[in-house]
Design a protein around this nucleic acid. Structure first.
Lengths: 328, 328
DNA sequence: TTGTAAGCGTTATCAT
DNA sequence: ATGATAACGCTTACAA
């Protein structure tokens, strides 16, 4: 590959002149410019980003760590991130932990080795959390966490107000006259799942309604697992089921149908996410919208801001909304 | 940040010794090893990947260019890619063109600047194609293209046999006794869409069945657009509708229902992809499975192979299968 | 306006 | 088994 030296040689000038010209500094004679342009074109020269990064300590690259790209929610967050970052001339390095929190440390480690200017870590920590580890990281490199709410150090963060979203759902259902509820959560130990459950219970409690312990089951954010959980819960004859994701709500619809019940006449179902799934089911799902793409974009903007001028930790809260369709 | 020099200093040895030890070369005395280990731990030293890349010309990083991560199909391909690449100690740089083919050149350009050891370009080229551009790229860097079938230079490629998949669908439907068909394609100019349509037509033709021109409509891989297309097509009373994606097939189901027809009794619907969507709809969709995750994994393996020993272009064909559910 | 030269953090060759 | 040093491709004072 052609390098700056060969360009300089061919153009008959010094490397520093080429460097300055390529960088856009304008104190270079027209005649020289033309010679350099010609040399660049002829050699197919392309500045070597790695060398530049080594010299300047700026990589123009941001690391993103996610649990899995196959969850549409995370895909949306990544989409929001890459859009904003690419628009700001950053490239992105993606590391997927495949839902193994233990791989998070490894992933961050590889990204950290002088490869990126900043880091975005997406997704819930587990029960144990990786708090101590991230605590170190944020001293090494600008860091933004997304939807990791338990992390109570002062991190720059974008969080969705999952609790408020669940309260919207509960409020709406109670207002509709339902009194006997069941909930399908994600993972018992997962913070996002817990916050969603917590908000729902809290709102019910304020309305003087109790949610029986038998009425909560884990669905593991999986269609099949949620289906089985739903079959069990339906035995207790709830009037309405709240699922922590649209995918699991879709499973509830299926279970309901297989039990010979009709939604919404015999039972109401409400999902979470307002993903494409919620439009596709029959009946279409009432759901809590959580603006995943915008969360990603907000995280990108926050990180860029933080890299420009560091300071005390900043926080962005993403609001949720209720989207009413035909399942309630 | 601590560098190799500071470690060497603290350990009281030369940088080259540290370098050798860290690289795992074993000609280093136990005593020295311990001193170095202590220094590394104390300083929190982490080898600088960028500097190493500059020196060795290997980045251990692979570039991935995709149209958009929000399409579950591409997300699956990326998942397959990152799994295999991470397992082989590669990091991945992701560039998303947001469905603008024109951005592909820009994206590849940024990745090319000494940032990556190899490149995977995913997705159809448009009518015009970016063939000439990629033709240059493959001389610069190891390249694998995925599902870009029109590209007729000798590229390393992983392609899904879309045509064969469509033929499976047509064969099955004709066997079931259907004779009057409608098709919802993606984009008219998109090769994947065209191949899917082509296979379907071809199989019908061999069975002596004609597909009227009015019976084909663009759905743009969008739920809403496909819904409108379906409403129009239903006016011509097809006995079965073949959609080029599950999402669009779901839209057909909706349109059918809104027209007061029942699937599969009044009309059959068949999708493409075997994505999660196909299990969720009511009735669940019969669909052509296309193994997206495996395509990504195959592309990763192919690229690794090509980087190890270059040679004539290799090709991997991914087969398709029919998955029969309740919509036919 | 252009040239000289040091240095970013590594690795690798050659001595010792 | 270890040390000295050049080099990777670039940027950036500083000098001319």
């Amino acid at each position: 590959m052609a390098n700056i030296k060969s360009v300089a040689q061919k153009a008959g000038v010094n490397v520093s002149t080429v460097s300055r010209y390529v960088a856009g500094k304008l104190n270079v004679k027209k005649e020289t410019r033309e010679k350099i342009d010609a040399a660049i074109a002829e050699l197919g020269y392309r500045p070597h980003a790695t060398a530049k990064a080594l010299k300047t300590s700026v990589t123009n690259c941001i690391g993103i760590v996610i649990p899995t790209i196959r969850n549409p929610l995370f895909a949306d967050i990544v989409a929001g991130l890459t859009q904003r970052l690419e628009a700001n001339k950053f490239t992105t390095m993606l590391y997927s932990t495949e839902n193994h929190l233990s791989k998070e440390k490894e992933g961050i480690g590889t990204l950290l080795a002088g490869r990126v200017d900043g880091l975005v870590v997406v997704g819930s920590s587990g029960k144990t959390g990786s708090r101590d580890w991230l605590e170190e990281v944020k001293d090494i490199i600008p860091l933004v966490v997304v939807n990791r709410c338990w992390q109570n150090g002062d991190f720059n963060r974008v969080i969705t107000d999952f609790t408020a979203g669940s309260r919207l759902a509960a409020d709406y259902l109670v207002g509709k006259g339902y009194r006997r509820f069941a909930v399908i959560t994600g993972y018992k130990d997962n913070e996002e799942s817990q916050l969603k459950l917590y908000g729902f219970e809290q709102e019910l409690w304020q309305r003087g309604i109790m949610l029986g312990q038998d009425m909560v089951a884990e669905g593991f954010f999986s269609y099949d697992k949620a289906y089985h959980a739903a079959r069990k819960l339906l035995g207790y004859r709830p009037e309405a089921v709240f699922a922590a994701s649209d995918l699991m709500a879709a499973a509830v619809l299926k279970a309901t149908k297989d039990c010979g019940l009709v939604v919404p006449e015999d039972m109401a179902v409400i999902g979470y996410g307002d993903s494409q799934i919620s439009q596709i089911t029959t009946p279409a799902l009432t759901t809590v919208a959580q603006h995943a793409v915008e969360s990603g974009a907000a995280a990108a903007n926050l990180l860029i801001e933080v890299m420009k001028e560091p300071g005390p930790a900043r926080e962005v809260i993403m609001r949720t909304e209720l989207v009413v369709r035909q399942s309630t």
